[in-house]
């Protein structure tokens, strides 16, 4: 990664693995956000994990970043989800059982859903993310409210988030028999914090849901991109405010992960 200096992790700092596949494209900024939050982070190609050159045992945080894995050719995240489920199932299940944190952002959320890790680790896929109701790829900033009392580690202490979305398939579909099993973490709202329709909900998602967690709170999947808002001047409105040097709201998600994972390291 080209940076003007390298942030170096120590033995005490938690370790994060950012998984790459052909078509992953949010890996560098995701790794940067994790390092900024204090995790020592490796970008690892899925091939390294499959051939056991790298082991999840050495990590406390596992992130599937955004992108178009395998082009999203047969549905967003489909092929990569199969690869994870078929080739990494046991290793990932052990990682989750050990208490590791799993974060899926955008394409990563689609992959966690299709690989059966959300709404809770189970055999097979139970909910889905469909093409946006608008029929278009949508790149815009959205407001979200964190659901009160949800168990998610990543959103502890956060009430509101404003982040960018950029996706064509983010419409959560929950079959009636699964409605009781999902744990929403984030709802799209208007700037005033009220649930509202398009474009505030950019994709037509079920119940305006932007992200889901599992009952343990250690797995989070969300469509918006916290890694794209770790500095205040990544926000579209920064030129209207005085402060250009502060943190962005998305950083809190990674700080929460690192704080929790420090206990595991």
């Amino acid at each position: 990664m080209e940076t003007s200096s390298r942030l170096v992790g120590s033995m005490e700092t938690p370790r994060a693995l950012v998984l790459k596949a052909p078509g992953t494209n949010c890996d560098l900024e995701t790794a940067f956000a994790l390092e900024l939050a204090g995790a020592s982070t490796d970008l690892v190609h899925v091939g390294r994990l499959v051939e056991r050159a790298v082991s999840l045992r050495d990590y406390q945080i596992f992130v599937v970043p955004g992108g178009f894995s395998y082009g999203d050719d047969l549905g967003s995240g489909k092929v990569f989800a199969n690869e994870i489920e078929l080739r990494l199932h046991d290793e990932l299940a052990a990682f989750v059982d050990r208490g590791g944190l799993v974060l899926g952002i955008c394409n990563g959320f689609q992959i966690l859903v299709r690989a059966g890790l959300l709404p809770r680790p189970s055999a097979g896929q139970r909910v889905s993310l469909l093409p946006n109701e608008s029929g278009r790829f949508e790149c815009r900033w959205v407001h979200m409210r964190v659901v009160d009392g949800n168990p998610c580690i990543f959103t502890r202490g956060i009430e509101h988030l404003e982040l960018a979305v950029a996706h064509g398939e983010g419409r959560l579909l929950v079959p009636p028999d699964v409605e009781g099993d999902i744990i929403p973490v984030l709802h799209y709202t208007d700037p005033g914090g009220r649930r509202a329709g398009y474009p505030h909900n950019p994709n037509g998602s079920y119940m305006d849901i932007a992200g889901l967690t599992d009952p343990s709170g250690r797995i989070l999947g969300l469509m918006p991109h916290p890694e794209r808002f770790v500095r205040s001047l990544q926000h579209p409105g920064w030129t209207a405010s005085v402060e250009a040097s502060g943190d962005g709201q998305g950083l809190a998600v990674f700080l929460n992960a690192v704080r929790y994972a420090r206990r595991l390291a």
Partner: peptide, 23 residues
Amino acid sequence: VIRQYDHEVQGSSVLKPLVGVDA
């Protein structure tokens, strides 16, 4: 057109193609 292009990926954009209160 603009919203169908990802102008936020890489986390690098500082001045985006659409600006202002409602972007």
